Amino acid sequence: VTVHVDGVEYDFDNPEEALKFAKKVAEDKNGTYEVHGNQIRVT
């Protein structure tokens, strides 16, 4: 699973970890996250 944040890609073997990371980053920057299959984009 790849999490995209501001043009940087973070790869996770564990989808739950990826989702947790995306949620935290989105909260920290008052943004949102979208899941597209095995890609998660934080905006």
Rank of each mutant, 00 (worst) to 15 (best):
D6E: 08
H4L: 14
R41K: 13
F21W: 09
V1L: 08
D11W: 15
D6H: 08
N14E: 09
V5H: 06
G37R: 04
E27M: 13
E17R: 04
D11R: 15
E27P: 01
K29V: 14
P15A: 14
Y33Q: 02
R41C: 14
G37H: 06
N30H: 10
V5E: 02
D13E: 12
D6S: 06
Y33H: 03
N14M: 06
H36K: 12
P15K: 13
F12R: 00
H4A: 08
D28A: 13
T43Y: 13
N38G: 06
A18T: 00
N30E: 09
V42A: 02
K23C: 09
E16T: 08
K29C: 14
G7V: 02
G31P: 02
D6Q: 06
A22V: 04
H36T: 12
A22C: 05
H36F: 13
E34Y: 09
K24F: 06
E34D: 06
A18L: 01
L19M: 08
F21S: 03
E34V: 11
D11V: 15
D28T: 11
K23P: 02
I40R: 00
K23M: 10
G37K: 05
G31Q: 05
A26H: 02
A18E: 02
H4Y: 14
V3H: 00
V3G: 00
E16H: 07
L19A: 03
N14Q: 06
T2F: 06
K24M: 12
Q39Y: 11
R41G: 04
V8N: 09
D28L: 12
E9N: 10
K29S: 13
D13Y: 07
Q39M: 12
V42K: 00
K23V: 09
D28N: 10
T32F: 13
T2G: 02
V35E: 05
V8E: 11
D13T: 11
T43N: 12
E16G: 06
I40C: 04
K24D: 10
L19R: 04
V25D: 02
N30M: 08
R41F: 15
T43A: 09
E27A: 14
Y33F: 13
N14P: 00
V1P: 04
V25I: 14
F12E: 00
Y10F: 10
V1G: 03
G7S: 06
V25K: 07
N30W: 04
H4C: 15
K24H: 10
A22F: 00
Y10P: 00
E16P: 02
Y33S: 02
V25G: 02
K24A: 13
N30K: 12
N30D: 10
L19N: 03
K23G: 05
A26G: 03
R41I: 15
E16Y: 08
K23S: 09
H36I: 15
H4E: 10
Y33P: 02
K20D: 15
G31S: 06
V35Y: 07
E17H: 06
I40P: 00
Q39A: 10
N38I: 05
E17F: 05
V42I: 12
K29T: 15
T2V: 12
E34M: 07
N30Y: 06
N38T: 09
V25T: 09
A22Y: 00
V1N: 05
A22T: 02
V8K: 13
Y33T: 05
K23D: 09
K23L: 05
T43M: 13
D28E: 14
L19C: 09
A26R: 02
G37N: 07
D28Y: 10
D6W: 06
Y10G: 00
H36D: 13
G37F: 05
T2K: 11
T43H: 13
A26K: 03
D6M: 09
